[in-house]
Simulated assay, not measured.
Amino acid sequence: MTPPPSQTRDFPYWLVAAAAIAIAVAISIAASDLYVQIFGAISRGIWITIWVTLVGFALASALGLGIALMALSKSLVLRQIARFYVEIIRGVPVLVLLFWIAFAGVPAFVAGWNWLTGPLREAGFGGELLVRDISLLWRAVIALTIGYSAFIAEVFRAGILSVDPGQIEAAKALGLTGFQRFRLIVFPQAIRTILPPLGNDFVAMVKDSSLVSVLGVADITQLGKIYASGSFRFFETYSVVAYIYLLLTVSLSLMLRALERRMRRSIQ
């Protein structure tokens, strides 16, 4: 019996075509002094992009898991706080949130912290606790963390709810604590449902990390903008920028798909 098309694995012709184009572009860059110069000027921002993405996503995942557990709590207050956070944050565009955190939220936090710790400093107890400044890089990371945590919280919540309640009841009957039930029963099963959308959010954050360039953070996009405005080589510069982002996102997508297939085989 022939399996349905949804269960067959097509030969990845698209990947062959993409790889051929990537190789052709790489050869063109290596053979052109102009493209080599552009790539050298922009490549310094790759590490900033990777750092912002990894740190932001790790913090967003931790915060999102906390919000998801609050949303599933028995406490009405915690559930309502979690729902309020998710709905409000998801309703604000990431770029607007980035501006608000960088130029309104963080300065307000610094001013409030300085005001609260003022009496301690005067008494000689809080001199080193005074927040003097938070760099624009960290402001960008905080904004991405808050923005993505709301979406990731919904991913975690849906994954946890997908676990069979009967298994949780059985774990309770065995005397497992709430943390043990989550660590040994719920999370190992939920991660199989969580991983695909969580991977999509990770790839999306790689692309949205380009928004930090509006704060002057020296990522790929910002360095490309600086080079293009100084050399007026807009086509060549932004072609290289797009090429680098495509390499990052397509590579991550392939690795995530391979991980999903491996987990699917382990289940079977």
Results as ranks from 00 to 15, higher is better:
197 P>E: 02
169 E>L: 04
7 Q>E: 15
125 F>E: 06
249 T>S: 07
222 Q>S: 06
15 L>A: 15
235 F>R: 12
14 W>H: 13
4 P>K: 13
20 A>C: 13
178 G>P: 08
252 L>M: 10
146 I>S: 04
120 L>Y: 00
96 V>E: 05
140 A>T: 07
22 A>R: 09
141 V>M: 03
235 F>L: 15
35 Y>N: 10
37 Q>H: 12
237 T>L: 01
155 V>Y: 02
235 F>G: 06
162 S>D: 09
172 K>W: 02
179 F>G: 08
61 S>K: 04
12 P>M: 05
99 F>Q: 09
260 E>A: 02
189 Q>N: 07
86 V>F: 01
196 P>V: 07
262 R>M: 11
10 D>P: 14
156 F>D: 00
193 T>K: 13
241 V>C: 08
105 G>N: 08
23 I>Y: 08
48 I>R: 03
106 V>N: 05
265 R>S: 11
235 F>H: 08
34 L>Q: 15
186 V>A: 01
61 S>M: 12
47 W>Y: 14
139 R>G: 11
83 R>C: 00
97 L>T: 10
133 D>Q: 15
23 I>Q: 06
258 A>V: 10
33 D>I: 11
126 G>S: 05
14 W>N: 13
1 M>T: 13
184 L>V: 14
41 A>H: 13
74 K>P: 03
54 L>K: 13
266 S>M: 14
40 G>S: 13
224 G>P: 06
